[in-house]
Each structure stands twice: as C-alpha cells, then as structure tokens.
Design a protein around this nucleic acid. Structure first.
Lengths: 136, 136
DNA sequence: CAGTATCCCGACGGATACTG
DNA sequence: CAGTATCCGTCGGGATACTG
C-alpha cells in the first residue's frame, strides 16, 4: 500500500457522503491507535526525538511516568520496531534508547499533533469550561 | 497544523540534545492526548470527515462502538468544540453531528496518522511477530 | 543504574434494559 | 430514532518493594 493507503482512505470517503472506512482497515487503525494512543508512547517518542536517552533520563524527561509504565512502554515500542535498546556492558550499567527510522517517521506526526495541541489548547479549554458552565 | 506554537516546541527541542519538553506543556499535551487518544474519538472524527451524520449512521459506520461509548464520546467531542450537535424537532427525531472548523483542523492530522498506520501496519506486524518469536 | 515483581484501585468500556 | 440508566468485568497504570 505504501503511500497509497492514506490517500485510499480519503478517496474512499470522498466517493460518497456515507462511505465508511472499510471494516478491515478500521481493525488495524484501532491496533495502531491502541499502541500510539496509550498514555505514554507518544510522549516517549517525542522526547526521544533529540537523540538517544538512558532509562533514567527518560524517567526525568517524562514527568509522572512510573518505572513500571516506562519499562512496559519501552518494551512495546521496541517490539514494534519504533525504538532500539542498546545495553553497554559496563560497571555502572548503561542502556540507551533510540528511535528507529520507523520511529522517526512517526515522529513527524507526533510533532504535528503536539503542535496542534499547543495551538488549540486554549480554545479547547475555553470550550470545555463554557460547556461546563452552561451545563450547570 | 500548528502555525505558531508547534514551531515553538520544535524550536525548544532543537535548543539542546537533552532539552525536554517543558513540564507545563507536557501537562496539556497529555490532556489532548487523553481526549484524542481514547478508543473512539479519532475514529468518529475520521468518519465525520465526509459530512454530517446521524446517531445511527455513526453507530453503523464505526463498527463495534456501543451506544454508551458513542453517546459519551460524542458529548466529550462536543464539549471540546470539535463537533456540533444539531437536533431537528421532527416527529421521528433527527440529530446530526458535524465537525467544527476546530474539528476539521484535527482531521488533517487524523488522516495523516491513519495514513501512517496504513503504510506501516505490515512492517509493525512483522516486527511484533519477530519479537514474539525471538522471545519464546 | 536499570530494571522486575506484586498489590491494588479506578476507569474504560461492553451488554442489557429502559425512555422521550 | 436517539438516546439514558445500570450492572459489571477487564485492565491500564500507580505505589511500593526488591534485584542483578
């Protein structure tokens, strides 16, 4: 599918006003979304943008993440081939995590999403507050 | 995408190899991610791309979503100002949901993400399977 | 330093039934 | 048609303690 699938979806939707995304595509969209849309993946990818980071560095740069979730998320990302883990056999053990090319290809989207969040954060906040006020 | 703030984040990250995303930005990035990264929001936005849809249409076009989650997600999206809800006082009640301009601005990102998912789905699958095999 | 192991709670979300 | 109400299971994920 390469660069065609994305356009394929758009194209399909453009065929008719009610053209749904095919059910099978829904399935793997959800799979990717589950991985990418979890609480920490995107944040870790965003933070890894600027270069390799060690376990402790990641923990420091992503405030609020627990050791458990850091380990878990890193392993998932690694298994999906989005990051690589490199352990150096040294006396104080050192492990570095790096984005793979695949991970870097996602990073552009992450950056865009973060940019969108930054741009519209205030607007969304306002809408949310306004809805809460009207609802009360 | 972001016209100003996004560049700001990128710029900040570009300052130094270890420059983290500021903690306060982390906070609202997480807020946006929580909303956008949940199980159904992106799918609903994707489906609403092609125009207004009614409750039942949405339920049909997003296979697997329960009435409960459809209602809940729609209300959240509405409160955030990403979609509008229009009820027509007719004898068979009719309600239409539409993307707001804000929602449409997100939709571009959604499409990109879905395109990415489509493009790299096979690759990720392969990586995942390979990791599972090696691990056993 | 770089993790793993265990406990545990809250929410996310599905199924079902009911309503204006 | 367009929802709401209720019940209930699953599991994401935090806190804490321990290990190579």
């Amino acid at each position: 599918m390469g660069t065609t699938s994305g356009a394929g979806i758009v194209g399909a939707a453009a065929i008719g006003p009610c053209a749904a995304i095919p059910a099978d595509q829904m399935a793997f969209i959800r799979q990717i979304l589950d991985r990418v849309g979890d609480k920490w993946s995107l944040l870790l990818i965003a933070v890894l943008e600027s270069g390799p980071l060690r376990y402790t560095d990641l923990q420091r740069q992503v405030p609020g993440i627990s050791q458990r979730m850091l380990s878990l998320t890193l392993r998932q990302l690694q298994q999906d081939g989005l990051i690589t883990r490199t352990a150096y056999a040294e006396v104080p053990p050192r492990v570095e995590y790096t984005l793979t090319p695949l991970g870097r290809s996602l990073h552009g989207i992450v950056t865009t999403l973060i940019g969108w969040a930054a741009d519209h954060h205030d607007e969304i906040r306002a809408n949310r507050d306004r809805a809460a006020t009207l609802g009360s």
